[in-house]
């Protein structure tokens, strides 16, 4: 982790609030996410936070600590596919302890039990949906916080901050609730489960700029080694690195400012069929 830590000494110093009159873009994103997290904590009990070890979910942990003054006052949830990179497991062990997370883990069921009509990579990804459902049942969770963003994928672009799901976590895209003026859906029929998406309005660049400003630790696989780096982290067998020489935060940000390649280009399950990711998500994937 020493190499990764060296990257956090980034070029931009955190400016104190004291001398700053107006909020900047990252302040605005942070304030909106904190507001959403506090709404979820006030209205949805018990609540859990999905922690996938990726950059977005680390930002989410950070925002929780901002919202709740250093704490994450609900369990962190980790769906273990057993196929994550060793660096990710090491990261989990270190920061679960350092951040004081109440970590709840659940092994994913074998791929043979998944919908056989799904393309192979999507079928592999569907395992996580089942582990999450088990966690939700085991901890009797009313709602789960997930770090998805609108700019990741066209179906995620249509999400709400507070997104109701049916008893089997299914997403009814035709009946999404209106969401205006930060008044979220907080009244539910029995059996409804809620996904809360506090990072929905962030972009990939926003996430990296915030990581740089706040010096948030991330898995070192994001930084280039030997001309390759991971832009998005999933299971080893269905996630591919991209060609890149970006070996620190400034270089990653510069790279993303110039690129037109979508973030999830290296995630096989998104590209097998026109609707494979939609099918995953409608069935309860994040």
């Amino acid at each position: 982790m020493a190499e990764a830590a060296a990257n956090f000494g980034g070029s931009t110093q955190r400016r104190g609030w004291l001398n700053k009159r107006l909020m900047d873009h990252l302040d605005a994103l942070e304030a909106q996410s904190v507001y959403i997290l506090r709404e979820a904590f006030n209205k949805l009990d018990p609540l859990g936070l999905l922690w996938s070890l990726g950059k977005d979910s680390n930002v989410m942990v950070w925002l929780c600590r901002k919202a709740f003054f250093g704490r994450v006052p609900f369990p962190a949830l980790f769906c273990d596919t057993g196929k994550k990179f060793p660096e990710m497991y090491a990261f989990r062990d270190r920061y679960a302890a350092e951040w004081g997370l109440n970590l709840n883990q659940e092994p994913c069921p074998p791929v043979e039990e998944m919908d056989p009509t799904l393309p192979p990579a999507a079928r592999s990804s569907a395992r996580k949906t089942y582990a999450l459902k088990n966690l939700v049942q085991r901890l009797k969770l009313k709602a789960v916080i997930a770090g998805i963003r609108r700019d990741e994928d066209a179906t995620r672009a249509k999400e709400r901050y507070f997104s109701p799901r049916g008893e089997n976590a299914e997403w009814d895209v035709r009946e999404q609730p209106p969401e205006l003026w930060d008044q979220f859906k907080t009244e539910f029929a029995p059996g409804t489960h809620i996904r809360v998406h506090p990072l929905l309005h962030w972009t990939e660049l926003d996430v990296w700029r915030y990581i740089r400003r706040e010096k948030i630790p991330v898995v070192e696989l994001y930084f280039a080694k030997g001309g390759k780096r991971y832009r998005s982290l999933g299971d080893q067998d269905i996630t591919h690195p991209m060609t890149s020489n970006a070996s620190n935060l400034d270089e990653i940000i510069a790279e993303l400012e110039a690129t037109r390649t979508p973030e999830r280009a290296g995630r096989a399950m998104d590209h097998e069929a026109e609707d494979s990711f939609e099918r995953l998500r409608v069935a309860g994937y994040m």
């Binding site: 955190r14 609030w17 909020m23 304030a31 003054f69 250093g70």
Partner: peptide, 17 residues
């Protein structure tokens, strides 16, 4: 109040949580 604790501001304006 704020976290981290060393970032406690003395004033705040519209838009901040």
């Amino acid at each position: 109040e704020a976290w981290p604790e060393n970032a406690k501001p003395s004033e705040a304006e519209a838009g901040r949580s």
